[in-house]
Computed example of a mutant assay.
Amino acid sequence: MSIAKIAAPRRRRRTPDEARREAVASARRLLLAGGPDAMTLSAVAADIGVTHANLIHHFGSAAGLQSALMGSMVADLNQALTTAVARLRTDEGAPLELVNAVFDAFLEGGAGRLAAWIAMSGDLSHLEPVREAVQDLVHAIGEKMGESGHARERIGSAVLFIALTAFGESLIGDPLRNMLDQPENATRSVVASLLPYFVGKAEV
């Protein structure tokens, strides 16, 4: 009895932009399914039916692909934050919506695990999209609240608080909450309840 060979993924012509988009989408799927270790150039190449050399051509290295993926995740986060920030002043539920947008990006979107992976590699230049995102968020909240000066510093502190908490939640939230017998949404609720003290009109 002969053993049938498994056909390799059929390769097709792609524009450079198409190849990059497909590679980033594949990297995100692999990250969410197996963590950063699963997101290798070889795995991505096999998933989308291109050569390893082709991915090197487009991204330069595995770190370049990770940086592109982080940029894609940050773009998704910014879209969610645009709506959340617009509601901060008028909607009592807006602080939780803002917190949820950041937490969802770090957890469901995989940005927390990827950021940790990049940070551990020692090349923090690939976290540049994150820096731009948090600065944009500080600016957007400041414009919405009509504040500047010392108030802008407090807004920066609020963003730092949200981002660090979301990052920690993405890495160790489940076991830590279980140790403390806390519900699944406990961290988000605590952060949302404190956010008005940072961005409210009154000095703290």
Rank of each mutant, 00 (worst) to 15 (best):
D104L: 07
I6Y: 06
A84Q: 02
L96V: 04
G146E: 03
N78P: 02
G49H: 09
H57G: 08
S193F: 09
L137V: 07
G35M: 08
T90K: 07
T51E: 11
A158F: 05
I3R: 15
Q66D: 14
I6W: 02
M70V: 05
Q135K: 10
L81H: 01
R154I: 01
R20K: 15
R14M: 15
D181R: 12
G64R: 03
T15S: 15
D91K: 09
L176T: 14
R177A: 06
H52V: 02
T82F: 05
S125L: 06
S148C: 08
G122C: 09
I172L: 08
R89H: 08
L69P: 03
I172P: 00
A86G: 13
P196H: 10
V134E: 05
A101M: 04
A186F: 15
L30P: 04
P129T: 05
R89P: 05
L41A: 02
A166K: 02
V159G: 00
D17L: 08
R152F: 03
A84P: 04
E169H: 12
G149T: 04
V130P: 00
T90H: 09
D91Y: 05
A202H: 12
A38C: 02
G93P: 00
A43D: 12
G60S: 06
G156R: 05
D136A: 15
Q182I: 01
S170N: 06
L69T: 13
H52F: 10
G156L: 04
A4E: 15
P95T: 11
A7T: 13
Q66I: 00
A166I: 10
P129F: 02
L127Q: 04
I6K: 15
K201I: 12
R12A: 04
E132K: 14
A38Q: 13
T51C: 06
E108V: 15
D136Q: 14
S2K: 13
D47M: 07
N78K: 09
S42Q: 13
R131A: 07
A186Y: 13
A119C: 02
L194C: 11
A163C: 11
F103E: 01
R12C: 10
L180E: 10
G64S: 07
L176A: 11
L65G: 07
E97P: 00
A27P: 06
Q79C: 07
V44G: 00
N100I: 05
D123W: 03
A25K: 07
G93H: 12
E143Y: 01
Q135E: 12
G156I: 05
A111T: 12
I172W: 09
L55I: 10
F59V: 06
H139G: 02
A19N: 10
